[in-house]
Design a protein around this nucleic acid. Structure first.
Lengths: 224, 224
DNA sequence: CGAGCCGGTAACTAAACAGTTACTTGATGG
DNA sequence: CCATCAAGTAACTGTTTAGTTACCGGCTCG
């Protein structure tokens, strides 16, 4: 049938092998990471498809396994990158340079707006917690990333207590968890909430009201 | 080989077919629902295995498909049941019978403790939101279940405003979302939070402190 | 200048999975 | 005592999926 069978030993259909546009390992790596972030965020660890990630990245599975080992290591990489991004942006805030009250307000606003602009981060957190931090626990890069946040927040609170504007019982971890709670729940659960309460929570008006609410609640809970 | 081959037409290995303990359709149905709740809560919609549900329930896939149609319908049933349970328990609180301040405090305590005792409910909410309420949206049973909650909460707030203990801007949906946020985030994200902050959030002492914090924050945000 | 390596492709494989089918058992009513 | 039906079992099927393998082609360096 095939008239050009010169190599009889191993004859496998030889495809045109396409034009290899340009080789760019860095770009390919970054594209896989970006595609994986989207895929894991949309479908969770169990629901994400390796083929889908490769296709989204405009490459193929071979490269994905070449750069990242396997699905689990790729997932952990995505998760670490997401944490590094938010903590880096947060650090640039320098909440200690304003008055204590403004500092806390700034942190609340930043956190809310970051969550709003990075829904994939919230999704990844949800997925990782469904699995009881199974992968995050293995990460060695992330422990020290967070002590800085608590340290800075602690300083601002102490300053406020000395100035007499914050109550003595204000605790840095509690303050951060309060801010994160109010932002996270509203956004990550917006779909079920909008459904059961028959009210679209994501309209600009409602988002704005909730932003003001977060700042109000956070400050009301620590002001003397 | 087989010496008792009297029926030559259809000869398939005939297993002993075990002792059929007792037939109890209701029990089987309930067992499947309970097993499915656990499996979906632990593994999400994509990660849950139909075989695993059948095994957990002490039955088999045939019965599961017989009673519930398919995996998606079973999942929706589990989700609906979870909502009905919490709203039913909540309704029994009758927060309107106490003083407004006590009423809100009661609701906050109840919500926190219910979340604490029903981690599977939080998991299911997380899973459903990952999928943008794809299945919940199809449910017709759940819309009216929630208007009652907001109505009752609204009454309590009005009463408090008249009595001069609550601020005028207090909004029933915002108050409920505040309570739910603080409970949900702390528990559902406990694994990543404990990991990144290097502090076990689930010890009795920490749980107790957060319970008091929720009541404090909720009331501080609406008191005049 | 050619050997081998690096970036890349596509087809293949073994396992897992949702859903189906063929069949069994025992209770009930005629 | 037999026809029927509900409850239940287990093996099978077609598809999907993570991971692998065989192969390709241009660049670099000895």
């Amino acid at each position: 049938m095939n008239d050009t069978g010169e190599s009889a030993k191993k004859k496998i259909k030889r495809p045109p092998a396409e034009r290899t546009a340009q080789r760019d390992p860095e770009r390919t790596r970054a594209a896989i990471l970006e595609a994986a972030t989207q895929e894991f965020a949309e479908n969770g660890m169990g629901g994400a498809r390796v083929d889908a990630i490769a296709e989204r990245a405009g490459t193929n599975k071979r490269m994905l396994y070449h750069y990242f080992g396997d699905k689990e290591q790729l997932y952990l990489r995505v998760l670490e990158e997401a944490y590094v991004s938010i903590r880096t942006a947060e650090r640039a805030l320098n909440i200690g340079t304003r008055s204590p009250e403004e500092g806390i307000g700034e942190l609340a606003l930043f956190t809310w707006r970051y969550f709003l602009q990075h829904p994939e981060f919230l999704s990844l957190l949800g997925t990782e917690n469904l699995h009881r931090a199974r992968w995050l626990r293995q990460s060695v890069r992330l422990k020290e990333l967070h002590s800085h946040l608590i340290g800075e927040l602690s300083q601002v609170l102490e300053e406020g207590k000395k100035a007499g504007v914050f109550i003595e019982s204000a605790d840095p971890l509690h303050v951060y968890l309060t801010i994160a709670s109010l932002g996270y729940f509203y956004l990550s659960n917006q779909y079920t909430l909008s459904t059961i309460f028959g009210r679209d929570l994501i309209t600009p008006g409602n988002l704005d009201a909730w932003e003001r609410h977060i700042v109000h609640v956070t400050l009301a809970s620590i002001k003397r």
